[in-house]
Nucleic acid binder design. Structure first.
Length: 987
RNA sequence: UGGCCCGUAGCUCAGUUGGUUAGAGCGCAUGCCUGAUAAGCGUGAGGUCGGCAGUUCGAGUCUGCCCGGGCCAACCA
């Protein structure tokens, strides 16, 4: 029974200690347990409780950009929705009423396409199905995916109005979208223009790029002369104003010649004037003709033209050639217009002649340079109108004189109903040859766009479209253009990160007029009637109301029902006098209008405000939703629908590469949830710099999992100790030991830092701040030091009660601060101490932290104390390496201090307790040379020494006093006192 | 090809108006503890700050070029 030298205790006092006591599991089991919390929140309807609780608070509205309702969610969706949830939840906890209404984009091509695919699989044809029926199938398809995505989003822990979301296809929405369109029309911002689109003659429909596949095709290729009409000097060997020269172009689509309106050249290419010296009799390119060609391509062109000898007369700057004649000039008295030369970057001298035949109705490059040259054309007195040379059936129209309906034998055709090449090319070539406009012809095999469905070639074809003016004065107000409104709106919008502002501004500054129309079925129709005689859009509020009311009751299908035109026009107009537009709206108009049918619908969503506090999407949405919403709202409201815009990057793989199925480096949110849990995914989002592209891979997830574990364990220890806390033992800050006061000071500092970071949407700062605090200051310092007091001190101990009180404050703050991020774990932690049906960490605000906890002087003083501590623990490490000690409690070092600042700081402090040694002696003199020192802590030296006395069997400290208490001879006096108190309390 | 953005230890991130030997957490290695224990504490090793050139007394920070990566440039959302 007698303890000897080492004082090794035989009695096990652990039952007499206040050891951590908790059922909170060390391992989270998130994948299994998270669904339970979700069910709990749903059962208590926590979203409604939040609204009720916050009903008198200022509104904060993060407006959901609608994902497209097809397919499962991917990691990008998860990132986006999680960020929105972080914003929404933190704003709620900062004292706002932060409602979140999720939405879905439901109209559009991809869904339409899926339905068509199903038809194809069943051998049916879309064109045989009534439009209303087809639209109904699209609707059902979208509904199914809304349900799937809703469950996937909820599983991420996203809190929102899931049972009352918005859908762009709801009748309400369709009605409001039509109203918005009619607002744009009525205010004179809508006009009908035209634009070349990919057109399938076989299917009689416009096609999207996604519906196009490329295949080799053999095309006719022709070289054509455009006689120079007039020009300036600048040629070395003399003026060419009156010389009989032609610009030579090259094209693989001879049928577009009637649509030619310009020739493009490049000022970066060298051109020359050439004369033919020798050529075969009867050759198209005959002796004496003069051609203008890119120097690099002249020889090749002459070879194709069978020219045997030619001479270069001199340099030519095509910029000085004002105009050319059209090569079909005079055919059926048509083509009398002048053909200008335009300088364009898309022109190269790799192939062809260095001149590009430009038919603005049949190519995007052509169209763009044409539209961009409107001012130049006006200066030259040339009409900028784009002709409709080819009809939807592939036949030439009256805009192609001599080849269209006026031609002998009827109009020529580009492509027939079976997708075969028509007679257009041959007839054009014949007409050109007849007018001596041909230089050469040939054939070429090249890649050409085909319809994905019919596998037949498509053509670029000018098609009537509806546009919104960017630069026309709205309602006659001088300078009040849509572009101007948008640029102003951008200036008063806050961007996170700030670079987004420039990006959006540059896009708005550059963008052409908004093309609203799509030749599609699944969308909101452009609810416009055009007077057949005057071509004017009907502007009648009564008609407009009739349309909107019908849409609200029956959906936009009303537009497609029999007799719809007369129904909407009413008695005042005759349906026969009006063209009812069959195009649907660009889906960007739908989603661009969400602010109108969601934020302003106070009946349905009373907790939302307009304009929204924030729009938050991926950086691609500068061109997308941010852009279209700004367009729509500026057109109809004159200002932005948002006060701020937050953008995030894209999710890359672990190496920073784009995720793609072909690289098989994709990470599915569903897999992460299944394996690790949604809180891990959320912690990844919060830890990342979302302003750039985010990386996600195995190693990164493991890092996140590790830091989650560490954090969880610290909270678990907190919970275990707080099991012994009783609120009636709470200690006021001013009565606490300095160590506790320092912790409270840190809490007060963090309170400001955390709130500021949340207000700035800087989540990674919060994660860094809190993990550093918890790891360095709590786990490795405060908790480590206070274990002794918490476990061993007597029941009555002020130190222990103070520590428990501090732990309670820590608990309150940390659980709240982390709640928006670790929504499941913080609920679990919170309920461990505050169970109850109505209890939830998510019904809390960030706690009020008393400002008087701040104590900078004390904190500075403890910086000095911690510096001394570092020297002590450093010296202990040497002893440990030398195997002289194991536990730090075996040591009782000597600390030499001369610096009065350190001495003052340590005055009244128990350095042994702070350094977790059994004893420490401080000597106010220079330490011996062999003493342990740290480079960055001048004036502190430590000499090792073994602790004296026996080891206390309860606290494991080694103290001379152990053995002096006759009643408890194997423990220290403090522990003896603790045991007496326990006995007295009947424990 | 154009517009915008990014590139600091194995990972996630700090690095103030250019100013000493570039920092943190985690991971890794290693020692201790065994009353937070599939935990806790200590110590240590890791970086030509994407590359090159320039401005400067001085550059991770400013400029140019190059390399690598991303978003946008769609009748895709």
């Amino acid at each position: 029974m007698t303890d000897t030298v080492t004082g090794a205790a035989k009695t096990d006092y652990s039952a007499t200690l206040f050891l951590p006591k908790t059922d909170f599991p060390m391992r989270a089991g998130l994948p299994q347990r998270e669904p339970d919390w979700l069910k709990r929140w749903e059962d208590m309807d926590i979203y409604a409780l939040q609204r009720e609780q916050a009903k008198d608070r200022p509104l904060f509205t993060i407006h959901d950009g609608p994902p497209y309702a097809n397919g499962n969610i991917h990691i990008g969706h998860a990132l986006n929705k999680t960020l929105k949830d972080l914003v929404s939840r933190s704003m709620q906890m900062l004292g706002f009423n932060s409602a979140y209404v999720p939405g879905w984009d439901c109209h559009g091509l991809p869904i339409e396409w899926k339905i068509e695919e199903q038809y194809r699989a069943k051998g049916k044809d879309k064109n045989d199905i009534p439009v209303v029926e087809f639209r109904q199938e699209c609707r059902t398809f979208a509904e199914q995916w809304v349900d799937v995505q809703r469950e996937e989003f909820k599983r991420l822990g996203i809190l929102g109005e899931w049972d009352n979301p918005y859908l762009t296809m709801s009748f309400d929405a369709e009605a409001q979208i039509a109203r918005e369109l009619m607002k744009v029309a009525t205010s004179g911002q809508l006009y009908r223009g035209s634009k070349p689109v990919m057109w399938s003659v076989v299917e009689r429909t416009a096609l999207a790029e996604a519906e196009i596949e490329y295949a080799d095709i053999e095309s006719d290729i022709i070289w054509v002369k455009f006689p120079v009409h007039s020009g300036g000097g600048d040629i070395k060997s003399g003026a060419f104003r009156d010389l009989n020269a032609s610009v030579v172009i090259w094209t693989t689509t001879p049928w577009t010649i009637p649509a030619n309106r310009a020739i493009s050249f490049s000022s970066k290419i060298a051109y020359g004037l050439y004369e033919i010296i020798k050529a075969p009799e009867g050759n198209w390119a005959s002796v004496g003709e003069k051609y203008i060609l890119a120097d690099k391509l002249a020889a090749e062109t002459f070879a194709k033209a069978k020219v045997e000898e030619f001479v270069r007369i001199g340099d030519i700057d095509p910029g000085h050639i004002t105009l050319c004649f059209h090569p079909l000039r005079g055919l059926s008295n048509g083509y009398q217009f002048a053909v200008p030369l335009l300088d364009g970057d898309h022109v190269t001298d790799d192939i062809g002649t260095g001149f590009v035949h430009t038919a603005p109705g049949h190519g995007l490059d052509d169209f763009e340079i044409w539209i961009n040259s409107i001012r130049l054309l006006a200066d030259k007195g040339i009409s900028s109108e784009v002709p409709y040379v080819v009809g939807d059936d592939g036949f030439y129209t009256k805009d192609a004189p001599g080849l269209g309906p006026d031609a002998e034998g009827g109009p020529a055709r580009v492509i027939d109903d079976n997708g075969k090449k028509g007679d257009a090319n041959n007839r054009v070539i014949a007409a050109l040859a007849e007018r001596n406009a041909m230089v050469a012809r040939g054939r070429v095999k090249h890649s050409y766009p085909h319809s994905w469905r019919s596998k037949k070639p498509v053509i670029f074809r000018n098609t009537p479209q509806w546009f919104v003016y960017m630069d026309r004065d709205i309602m006659g107000a001088a300078g009040d253009t849509l572009r101007h409104r948008m640029l102003n709106a951008i200036d008063v919008t806050k961007f996170y990160p700030p670079a987004g502002q420039n990006r959006l501004r540059a896009m708005i500054a550059d963008r052409p007029d908004w093309v609203l129309s799509r030749q599609r079925a699944w969308g909101v129709p452009i609810t416009v009637f055009v007077n057949k005689a005057t071509k004017e859009i009907l502007k009648d509020e009564v008609v407009n109301h009739r349309i909107a009311d019908a849409f609200k009751a029956e959906g936009a299908d009303a537009w497609y029902k029999d007799g719809a035109a007369q129904r909407f026009l009413g008695d005042a107009y005759k349906a026969d006098d009006y063209e009812m537009i069959r195009d649907v709206l660009d889906v960007w108009f739908d989603s661009g209008s969400t602010h109108a049918f969601v934020l302003r619908n106070k009946q349905k969503w009373p907790h939302l405000k307009f304009p929204a506090s924030m729009y938050l999407e991926g950086s691609d949405q500068h061109r997308g939703w941010f852009h279209s919403s700004l367009l729509e709202s500026c057109a109809t409201n004159g200002h932005a629908p948002y006060e701020s815009v937050l953008t995030h990057g894209f999710t890359m793989d672990g190496e920073g590469r784009k995720m793609s199925k072909s690289l098989s480096n994709t990470v599915a949110p569903q897999d992460i949830i299944k394996q690790y849990g949604a809180d891990i995914l959320r912690l990844w989002v919060a830890s990342s710099d979302y302003s750039e592209d985010l990386r996600l891979g195995k190693e990164i997830i493991q890092t996140i999992v590790d830091s989650y574990r560490k954090l969880r364990n610290s909270l678990r220890w907190l919970l275990g100790n707080l099991a012994h806390y009783d609120a009636k033992d709470a200690v006021n800050a001013k009565d606490m030991p300095e160590l506790e006061q320092v912790i409270l000071h840190r809490l007060a500092q963090l309170d400001t830092q955390v709130r500021t970071a949340y207000k700035e949407y800087d989540y990674r700062k919060i994660v860094t701040l809190l993990t550093n605090f918890m790891n360095i200051e709590l786990s490795a310092f405060y908790f480590d030091i206070r274990k002794d007091a918490l476990y061993c001190e007597p029941i009555s101990s002020l130190k222990r009660k103070s520590a428990l009180t501090a732990l309670n404050h820590l608990f309150d703050c940390l659980t709240a601060w982390l709640a928006p991020i670790l929504v499941f774990t913080m609920e679990e932690v919170w309920l461990e101490r505050h169970p109850g049906d109505g209890s939830s960490v998510h019904l809390r605000l960030f706690p009020e932290v008393p400002a008087h906890w701040l104590n900078a002087d004390l904190a500075a003083k403890w910086q000095l104390i911690r510096a001394v501590r570092r020297v002590v623990t450093g010296s202990l490490e040497i002893e440990r390496c030398e195997k002289r000690i194991g536990s730090s409690l075996e040591a009782a070092p000597k600390v030499f201090i001369v610096d009065p600042r350190y001495l003052a700081a340590l005055d009244g402090q128990d350095l042994a307790e702070i350094a977790i040694t059994s004893a420490i002696s401080i000597e106010t003199r220079e330490g011996p040379a062999e003493a342990f020192r740290l480079d960055d802590v001048a004036g502190i030296a430590v000499m090792p020494a073994m602790a004296q006395g026996k080891r206390c069997a309860r606290s494991w400290k080694m103290l001379p006093e152990v053995g002096t208490d006759p009643e408890y001879p194997d423990v220290s006096l403090r522990d003896a006192q603790a045991l007496r108190e326990r006995a007295a309390a009947g424990l």
